[in-house]
Design a protein around this nucleic acid. Structure first.
Length: 344
DNA sequence: TCAATTTGACCGGT
DNA sequence: ACCGGTCAAATTGA
């Protein structure tokens, strides 16, 4: 226990130090002449560091900032987790809901692929509820098995498709912050992506409300919607692939599902075609960085904003009442790294 | 015995 | 009051 706590603290410090170092590097890249890609990569790394740090703290985004809970002096004697546990037991009473814009992803898969179950979409899930609701066929509610152990807040909702009973609609909410010990599920993801079931992989990105109307062999819908922050859906735009990204074509989409779809969809894989409801063909030729970014894909500013917005808000207001409405986040304006004080 | 699932109750939002 | 989502006790299965 003691060892574990020390490890967490070290991890936390390491991540924060790394974040600071990367932020310094980013500052050096703020000139217009600097490459967009380099900045993107740095930003991704910074956010990943913060993400890991938050993960260590088991901070779920709804709680008061930990800095208010224990001083640096007491840090060594106080387990961050124990603080969080107290908060968790009281959060219903203490923390009011705040509106944020957060992403969820909906996918339709055929029955029998395993993805509708608790494991085979790349993560292990634990069912925590099922109920008959209007307009849905007895949806089942799953949360990440590692919710308790790692504070992973990813959830998914699985329901039989109302259009085709042989398909199930899976709505992923939140993003995995857990580290998987193994990746047995790549099998399932790969089985999906190797076109055994789907003649083509098609990604549907929409910004309006879901309830997808088309029936595609395999569709993924990403939506931005208002969700409350009482439970999940907080700050985990990235997952951390435990294996190097492979460039092999057959692995691309499975990796994309691995890293993005189940663990947070990253827009840079795709480029918008229309403003409303756009379809994107996923080219298997894009290589990804270890942070799930396509190096050679131009990142639209809006997408970048979306990716960065939650952590940016987090960075902005760790002490105050979080305003997590992401609609108008302006990264360049809000990101504090260009402030000299930040680096002092 | 422990972990996962089931299912009715509960809670907050609308 | 209704609804969606979550909780948690009871049940089931390995």
């Amino acid at each position: 226990m003691e060892k574990n706590m020390d490890f967490e603290q070290k991890t936390l410090v390491n991540e924060l130090m790394e974040g600071k170092e990367l932020a310094k590097q980013l500052m050096g890249h703020l000139q217009p002449s600097s490459s967009h890609e380099a900045r993107d990569v740095l930003v991704e790394k910074i956010l990943s560091s913060y993400e890991k740090a938050l993960s260590v703290l088991n901070w779920d985004g709804k709680s008061k900032p930990l800095a208010l809970e224990f001083s640096p002096c007491s840090f060594g004697n106080t387990s961050p987790r124990s603080v969080i546990i107290d908060q968790d037991t009281n959060h219903r009473d203490v923390f009011k809901k705040r509106k944020i814009t957060v992403r969820s992803e909906q996918v339709r898969v055929p029955l029998g692929t395993g993805a509708e179950g608790n494991l085979e979409d790349g993560h292990s899930w634990r069912k925590y509820g099922q109920k008959d609701i209007l307009g849905a066929n007895h949806p089942s509610y799953f949360r990440c098995t590692h919710r308790k152990t790692q504070g992973c807040l990813a959830t998914k909702q699985v329901q039989r498709s109302d259009q085709d009973p042989s398909f199930v609609d899976i709505t992923y909410k939140g993003h995995h912050t857990c580290r998987r010990a193994s990746q047995p599920a790549i099998v399932a993801s790969s089985s999906l992506t190797k076109n055994n079931h789907f003649p083509h992989n098609e990604v549907v990105v929409k910004e309006d409300k879901i309830r997808q109307s088309q029936v595609k062999p395999f569709t993924l819908e990403v939506k931005t919607e208002d969700l409350d922050t009482r439970e999940d859906h907080m700050f985990a735009p990235f997952s951390f692939p435990s294996t190097p990204i492979e460039s092999e074509h057959n692995h691309f989409f499975s990796e994309m599902i691995e890293t993005d779809f189940a663990g947070g969809f990253s827009s840079p894989f795709i480029s918008p075609a229309t403003s409303d409801s756009a379809y994107f063909s996923v080219s298997p030729c894009h290589k990804m960085t270890s942070f799930g970014l396509a190096n050679n894909v131009q990142t639209p500013e809006s997408d970048l904003t979306e990716i960065l917005s939650a952590p940016t808000s987090l960075t902005n207001s760790p002490m105050g009442d979080l305003d997590l409405t992401l609609d108008n986040v302006d990264f360049e304006m809000n990101f504090p790294f260009d402030s000299p004080e930040f680096f002092s």
